[in-house]
Design a protein around this nucleic acid. Sequence first.
DNA 1: CAGTGAGCGAGCTTCCGCTTGACTT
Length: 945
Amino acid sequence: MATGTTSAKPATGKGAGGGRAAGGGRRTGTSTGAANGRPTRRLVIVESGTKAKKIQQFLGRDYIVEASVGHIRDLPRGAADVPAKYKGESWARLGVDVDNQFAPLYIITPEKKGKVAELKDAVKSVDEILLATDPDREGEAIAWHLLDTLKPKIPVRRMVFHEISEPAIRAAVENLRDLDHDLVDAQETRRILDRLYGYEVSPVLWKKVMPRLSAGRVQSVATRIIVQRERERMAFVPASYWDIAALLDAGAEASPRQFPARLVGVDGTRVATGRDFGPDGQLKSARGKDAARALDEASARRLAEALEGRDLAVESVESKPYTRRPYPPFMTSTLQQEAGRKLRFSADRTMRSAQRLYENGYITYLRTDSTTLSDTAIQAARTQARELYGAEYVSPQPRQYTRKVKNAQEAHEAIRPAGETFRTPGEIAGEVDGDDFRLYELIWQRTVASQMADARGTTVSVRIAGTAATGEDVTFAASGRTITFPGFLKAYVETLDEGSDGQADDAESRLPELVKGQPLTAAELTPEGHTTNPPARYTEPSLVKALEDLGIGRPSTYASIIKTIQDRGYVWKKGQALVPSWIAFAVVGLLEHHFGRLIDYNFTAAMEDELDAIAQGTQHRTDWLSGFYFGADTGSEGSVARSGGLKKLVGVNLEEIDAREINSVPVFDDVVVRVGRYGPYLERVRDGVSQRANLPDDLPPDELTPEVAEQLFSVPQEGRSLGVDPVTGHEIVAKEGRYGPYVTEILPDTETPAETNGNGRKKAPAKPKPRTGSLFKSMTTESVTLEDALKLLSLPRLVGVDPESGEEITAQNGRYGPYLKKGSDSRSLANEEQLFTVTLDEALEIYKQPKQRGRRTAAATPPLRELGKDSATGKPMVIKDGRFGPYVTDGETNASLRKGDDVEKITDERASELLAERRAKAGTTTKKAPARKKAAPRKKADSKS
DNA sequence: CAGTGAGCGAGCTTCCGCTTGACTT
């Protein structure tokens, strides 16, 4: 089991594997080794290299502190990673033996082999090991993997801490515990579920939508959120409404003398504002106690006129205290959000900068879901606030922020300036610049502000009444906010999301002192029209927030989720906005219809609850996974285990899903967007004829309106125009087709053929077909010239007539490349140039040769390499280059070389192994899966008559 | 999404969460 091992830990997770840890001595602190009287030497293993260095300083010479640098083992990523021993297993593709209690197959992550060797070496020079990985589910699993991989013969114990400070580390060394196998079980179960989900559902997408697509518990929900928002935008009907903006005058004594107010009521009925309208453009609150009435333009103008010069009076003044508490210190998600809003950083850019700050000792750990500050950090923040703003700006009591967020694991502190005293941005300005400086400043401000006093002030709401000349009683409203003590707002104010209609916390608007009954006049009355807006698209920060609210994804993955959904082509960025592609619509549609439970927004939440039960020891991992994968009646409603049996679901869906239907996204009327192999296009049926139009890549789905569609349909199928054929006068274009790039001519419109009439289908008169020609391999649609195109369109070329048979010999370019054709007899040509140069004599010479069979073409190109004899058959083996790349053959069996195999370096043993594998596979999978037609060819007869 | 004549080796794509360093231009 040098490279691979199935889980040594039994499925129950109790006992074995960690036995030594469980039996580990209770020795703590600075005990001495009994044998030689020297102090006990201990190896401490943490996850991060930066942490290791820091902790080494606290612990001194008797300790060696090393980092695992994250996980050291994982399930194999693909076939290439599976050790030879397990290659033939039916479950090797998954890396999980689903029929044997879901036993996982772990391999040492290839790039971690060196690290594991280092750790093994370090073990030799110590008496005891302390596994000090992070105190959360993943950390517990890393600790177990370390134990299971290093297999030390010395005591092993678990060490935990939540902050990197000397007292915290010293305390941790004095309070060791044993490994928590139930918690490890929960992590493995999570890992296995994610693997089964991802590796079973993705292939469904490859077959039904497009290769290389992916589905997963996290990314599929992220994509769905974005698609769902776009659907809302597409369905949105804007509403327009009017009101009156007034500038009121309180007289020369008042300060300010004038202030803005807005019409809110007419004859006791509320005037509708934006939030009174639903997404369908209709008034939501037309009836009932809180009924509102929309004002149209004419009414608003008439009313404004009728109010001109009328007396108004203050009807009521309501004053309330305004207080704001500081925001909690940053954790990963809020840091990404605020850096996105304030600095316009992408999540990825924020994390790269934060990583540099962390590694250089400027901030604490950057991947955290905790807002907790250590005591020293709280003191440092308070000291700094006092020095900068004065004692009254510091909150009377130290503030600790406890989070109530789903699935938080709270292994670390909040993100804050490092150290026991904080360095101000000014102090580090000489050392740090650019992104890093700006991010540090943000973190510093937020941390200091979190220990400052509440902001205090007053908000005032005023109602003003009057009567129009036409008799209506009207009500205006005005509001003001004054901040009497800014408190923390002096240090930090959160920025609002784009498109939000809220008010920043430090925004002020002053009203004069007003009392009930006070007379006012209107200096200005301006009727104003407004239109409701569709919900805004997600941005990186707002998507991170949405995911966090759903408890989906972890601090270490938010940035990579955004990258993944972009890499897969599900989402693209337009400025800050995340726009879904049509492929995303197709994929999300498929998942919603056929794997509904899996992309339920609550799926992860349910999973987390049940993983907690596994961690508590009250739920059995195998039962639970079995329910998820094979299906079960047990488990409560909403349980992940009741998602219907993934395995069967995948099988059924592969049979039943109609790819054509899935890849057709209806947009409006009879217009559908079809997601094809070469990108999305529009389709509709007009007069029984299907029309198509290309869709520009950068057209956001919600901008595909009927008008835009009409315009796209009216544009002739595009292609790069190369010019006009001087002979025919037809335009020549280069296009990308189903079989690759080609050139064709555009024929002028001919008379529309007669339509179907009555009971019979009248045969349309034969339309002249445009000439077409595939590009040669050396050409691209970008570079091909008119001259090239005319040559291509001149094919097939008449080479001459066979004097013996009198048959014509032509040279043409076909599916398998250039060839000669004489009746039904064909011969391949060596290169494309010969299509134009081959003479009749040469052609006749070629026809004298017997038709080249497959074996002969191979013989024509010598093998890349000759090897020894196959250990199984004794036949000589050679490496050849084939359509799909290099392969090894013994003349009978052929086997492609795999990813890691090198033509030059491959050994006879390896070649024999590949052949043996191939034979084994041929034996078991002789059953030919009938190639399913992707979509039945469209026949006119199919359209319902 | 163009339409033209063989016979023959597919294998790979993909998940989520921990961590950064080691490649090449």
